[in-house]
């Protein structure tokens, strides 16, 4: 447990969150190096199966990051994401999986600082939860 380094996957939307993560980088803000980012065109395209697949492949935490409500490049994509994640968290709880390992984050292109902070906080939270073994194939 001592040297447990969580692996975290972030699905970041192309228009806001990915740019936000980029801004965090260009502003030389430091955040946890445990984070791997996958750029998706919209948070609304993140299928629950993708999230479970990430857990199955051994990730300890998954973040879905999208534009703030109302700001979606495709108007409504993040509303879909919200519905899915809220329900998926409930279902994960129901089957006894720690739903805290999944997070929905709104981060705009201007919020590099927020993105960096959230990543560090989330990594700490996962570190406390310990390694994810339940879905790992």
């Amino acid at each position: 447990m001592e040297d447990f380094e969580p692996k975290i996957l972030v699905f970041a939307c192309n228009w806001c969150s990915y740019a936000g993560a980029d801004l965090a980088g260009t502003s030389r803000l430091q955040y946890a190096p445990n984070v791997r980012i996958v750029r998706v065109m919209c948070s609304g395209m993140v299928n629950p199966a993708m999230i479970l697949y990430a857990f199955r492949k051994g990730f300890d935490g998954v973040v879905v990051a999208g534009c703030h409500p109302g700001d979606c490049h495709y108007n409504v994509g993040n509303y879909y994401a919200k519905k899915r994640i809220v329900l998926l968290k409930e279902m994960l709880d129901f089957i006894g999986f720690e739903s805290d390992r999944l997070k929905l984050l709104w981060a705009s292109a201007a919020e590099g600082k927020k993105f960096a902070e959230e990543m560090t906080n989330f990594t700490e939270r996962i570190r406390k939860l310990g390694p994810q073994t339940k879905f790992r194939g």
Partner: peptide, 17 residues
């Protein structure tokens, strides 16, 4: 494996939201 079966059933159920 049980976890993979659970994966399948969760996704199947999810499609009926």
């Amino acid at each position: 494996t049980p976890a993979d079966n659970l994966f399948y059933h969760l996704i199947r159920v999810f499609h009926h939201a």
